[in-house]
Structure formats: structure tokens, C-alpha cells
């Protein structure tokens, strides 16, 4: 198979799009992990809730964009309710208790979704105006919807950057990530901050879910599939750092996509093609974990650790 410039460009875009998707998930998870020191396995469930709500709202309103727009505050609300009802009492507990409780939430949400919408995957369609292709370069068509995801993701990243570095709330969030005790000693309502941060993380996961609906399978348990990659992203990027989440997501997205696309042909030039056939897919699926292991070895704090964390 010939590897052309056009193909490399297309695969790079694919990697970027996947990375952006991971970033939306990772941003929320890393904030919650970094600021609240809370391991939230149920983050994937919020992604699933976002996908289902967006699909339901889109079916109800007849508009995909309106559906996604409604799903965002709805998931935020779900996130806040979960935080207030279930998670608040767990902050003082150790991580094992948190893992156990949020694993319970995964089961709860999966069954709840199955009760409301059934176990079968549900139908979601692309908005017609995003159904076509755009020409990135002559001869390189790219699905408009995926280009849209990249656009939304980059916009959200910029907004988040502004929020975190240029606003008072962002300052508190950063302060919270660095030293929680000091922040609360200075009179910041840390409890409210936690709720807000958790809600924000939920809304970002919901956005990722809403955008994932038309390309992935919307069914109970869809959140767990992506959650592992998201954890890899925040480990690579550094826990608690938005910048780290951004870089980690792009690195993982690129490595995974390009690995799947080009590792086999590249291996085939070094070892025999049948051996490459066997080793290629296996190595490609391991690539992000190898990357994570390397990062953990050389920089155990991740690429961009949040400042002040010990």
C-alpha cells in the first residue's frame, strides 16, 4: 500500500478529531481528579447520559444542534445532582471507597438507561448540513461532521483556557488544584467550588457524548469503552492540568490513529510482511499504553503536572 501525503493528512485529521473527543472527556476528569482529589469512574456514565439526552432532545425538537444544546445544561444538572446526592460524602474517604462508589454509579446509570430506553442501541442521525464532505486539499475529502467536532473541541479548549487562566473562577480552580486547604482557609466556599467543577466536568462529558452519538453506537455501557483511554490521557498529561489534558489527548489520539494506520506498513519494511500482519495490530492497540508506561517512567508526574501538587 502506498502511503501518500493526502492519506497522511487525512489520518492526521482523524487523529486530531479523536484527540479532541478525548480532550472533552479528559478535561472534566482531570479537573475533578486534580482539584477534588476524587477518582470518578462514573465519568463515562455522564458521557453516556449526554449522548442519550442529546438523542432524545434531538428527536423531540427535530434539530440536532438544539438537541445537543439542551443536552449540555441537562447533563450539567445531572452532574450536580450526582455530586450533591452521592459523591459529597466521599471526598474524605480514600480512593478505594470512591472507586467502589463510582463503579456502583456506572451500574446504576447503565441499568437506568436500559430501563428508560431499552438495551438496544438507539438510532441517531447526522444533521443533514453536516452530512457531506469538505475538501481539505484537492482530492482529500473529509467528513464535515468530524471537521465540526474538531472545531467545537478547539473552541471549547480555548474557552476553557480563558476560563482557567483569565477569570476569577479559574483562579480559584487553579488554586484549588494546588492547595485545597489554603484555598478554603482563605474563605473560598470550597464545597460550592467542588459542585461547580463537577458540574462543569459533567457538561464537558455530556458534550462529548452528544457529539459521539451520530458516529458511535448509543447504547448502555458506551461510556466504559472510552473511559480507559481518557485515564491514559490524564496520566500522560499530568493529573489536574487542563493543558496536560489537551496535550495528552492530542498525543494519544494521534498515536492511536497513526499507529493503527501506518504501523503495519512501517513494520513490513523492517520485518517480513506476514510477521508484520501479526505484530502490527497487536502493537497498534498497545501503543498508547506503551506511551503511558514511558511517560510514567521518565516523568511520573505526567507531561504538565499541575503546579504545587506533591
Amino acid at each position: 500500500m502506498t502511503v501518500t501525503v493526502a492519506l497522511v493528512l487525512e489520518q492526521t485529521l482523524n487523529g486530531l478529531q479523536y484527540g479532541v473527543m478525548l480532550f472533552l472527556m479528559a478535561a472534566g476528569l482531570t479537573l475533578v481528579f486534580g482539584i477534588m482529589n476524587f477518582v470518578n469512574l462514573a465519568h463515562g456514565s455522564l458521557y453516556m447520559v449526554g449522548a442519550y439526552l442529546a438523542t432524545a432532545f434531538a428527536a423531540w425538537s427535530g434539530s440536532f444542534v438544539l438537541g445537543a444544546a439542551l443536552a449540555l445544561p441537562a447533563t450539567l444538572l445531572v452532574g450536580i445532582v450526582v455530586e450533591v446526592v452521592a459523591l459529597r460524602t466521599l471526598y474524605e474517604r480514600d480512593h478505594l471507597d470512591q472507586v467502589l462508589a463510582t463503579f456502583g454509579l456506572i451500574l446504576f446509570f447503565n441499568e437506568l438507561i436500559a430501563i428508560i430506553w431499552g438495551r438496544a442501541a438507539i438510532y441517531t442521525s447526522l444533521p443533514p448540513f453536516l452530512g457531506g464532505h469538505i475538501r481539505v486539499l484537492p482530492g482529500v475529502p473529509y467528513p464535515a461532521y468530524r471537521a465540526g467536532i474538531i472545531l467545537v473541541g478547539v473552541t471549547v479548549a480555548v474557552l476553557l483556557w480563558v476560563l482557567v487562566t483569565r477569570t476569577r473562577l479559574g483562579m480559584r480552580i487553579r488554586a484549588g488544584a494546588s492547595n485545597r486547604t489554603m484555598v478554603s482557609a482563605l474563605g473560598v466556599n470550597i464545597r460550592l467550588l467542588y459542585t461547580l467543577v463537577f458540574g462543569l466536568g459533567a457538561a464537558l462529558a455530556g458534550l462529548a457524548g452528544a457529539m459521539a452519538g451520530p458516529i458511535y453506537s448509543v447504547q448502555p455501557g458506551m461510556g466504559e469503552a472510552i473511559l480507559i483511554q481518557v485515564f491514559v490521557v490524564i496520566v500522560i498529561g499530568g493529573i489536574g492540568s487542563i493543558r496536560g489534558a489537551m496535550v495528552g489527548a492530542i498525543v494519544v489520539g494521534m498515536a492511536d490513529t497513526l499507529g493503527r494506520a501506518f504501523l503495519k506498513p512501517m513494520l513490513a519494511t523492517v520485518i517480513s510482511p506476514p510477521a508484520a500482519d501479526k505484530a502490527g495490530p497487536a502493537l497498534a492497540s498497545m501503543l498508547i499504553y506503551l506511551l503511558m508506561a514511558a511517560v510514567l517512567f521518565f516523568r511520573p508526574e505526567g507531561l504538565f503536572p499541575a503546579r504545587g501538587r506533591s
Partner: peptide, 20 residues
């Protein structure tokens, strides 16, 4: 003969390869 990861969600990379 392309073998993808079990439970993979995104096939865009493989689909680009098919197109090529």
C-alpha cells in the same frame, strides 16, 4: 486482512485506509 481491536469505537483511520 485488517484486524482491529475488540470493542473499538472509531474506524475512521481504517476507513481512510480502505479509501486509499
Amino acid at each position: 486482512e485488517v484486524y482491529t481491536q475488540l470493542g473499538q469505537q472509531d474506524y475512521q483511520a481504517e476507513i481512510s485506509q480502505i479509501r486509499a
